[in-house]
Design a binder for these strands. Structure first.
Lengths: 153, 153
DNA sequence: GTTGAAACCTCAGATCC
DNA sequence: GGATCTGAGGTTTCAAC
């Protein structure tokens, strides 16, 4: 799908405020409501917009701890990589799992209610997983920047 | 703010689908529309809901490359940490910046349009920043899991 | 103090140009 | 892309529990 200037403006605005009404969106990008809505639907259809999400305060929801874990596996055969990803997919506290090049095979973002809870996840769910060679984890002290998505325009 | 069972259900649903209509939300949590809307507004007011965002496909927007960079600084004095965070805040391709404990001081999530562009950000904006001792970066091969927010319920 | 019913008003979505 | 229309949804008011 080719995106013109107006499409990009729409995406930028919805990335900022996903609940903006279509009429406000239309005004901001210089269209009337119907063509604006058609563009939004087309962007959703094409998968450019993958969904809309409320951003919640993790701490107020009982997850003040965020940890990054760097995982190395013993085998990097595709089957073993997929097995690890499937294992991780079933652990709700692991929010992100990215496969990397280099020495570290995966970086995980994990949330927890406290350090004890994190330690339990680490020692009962992550470290004993099949094929895991090493896990190095670092606590997040603070998050200075947390932008959703990509820079548009 | 204390969250009861219904508040948590609302948050869980809006985290999944941030554009769900209030009437559908109300039905799903077993309320009528007005009290449901009041709860949502209260959650927004209290900062439990920090915002709503469209999730866009980075590749289709011209950012197929995601890199994690581990940064160590020469000085960890608070003033120097803040200076680095301010430096990072001004670089739009750096989407996240988390301060960690341990040897690595910061982990950054960076998006780029191609490897050359990433290399340019690295060598012209990040490595030469004041106080930077070392930057180790890893390309993301693929993202197996990417959940927004925290597990609710 | 929170819910629910009713009224109002704005918006989403379809149709046609 | 824009104009018009209709039904659905958002929002406020107020009574009731």
């Amino acid at each position: 799908m080719t995106l013109d200037r107006i499409d990009r403006e729409i995406l930028s605005l919805l990335q900022e405020d996903g609940r903006m009404t279509n009429v406000e969106l239309a005004e901001r990008v210089g269209l009337t409501a119907p063509p604006c809505l058609r563009r939004v639907r087309a962007l959703e259809q094409a998968g450019v917009i993958r969904g809309y999400h409320a951003e919640c305060d993790a701490a107020q929801l009982g997850f003040p701890i965020t940890v990054f874990a760097m995982v190395s596996l013993r085998s990097q055969a595709e089957h073993d990589l997929e097995a690890f990803e499937a294992h991780v997919a079933a652990i709700p506290e692991i929010r992100e799992c990215h496969m990397l090049n280099g020495e570290i095979d995966f970086i995980l973002k994990i949330v927890a209610s406290d350090l004890e809870s994190f330690q339990r996840i680490l020692t009962t769910k992550l470290t004993p997983a099949p094929n895991v060679a090493s896990v190095k984890s670092s606590l997040t002290i603070r998050t200075a920047k947390s932008m959703v998505g990509v820079p548009i325009e």
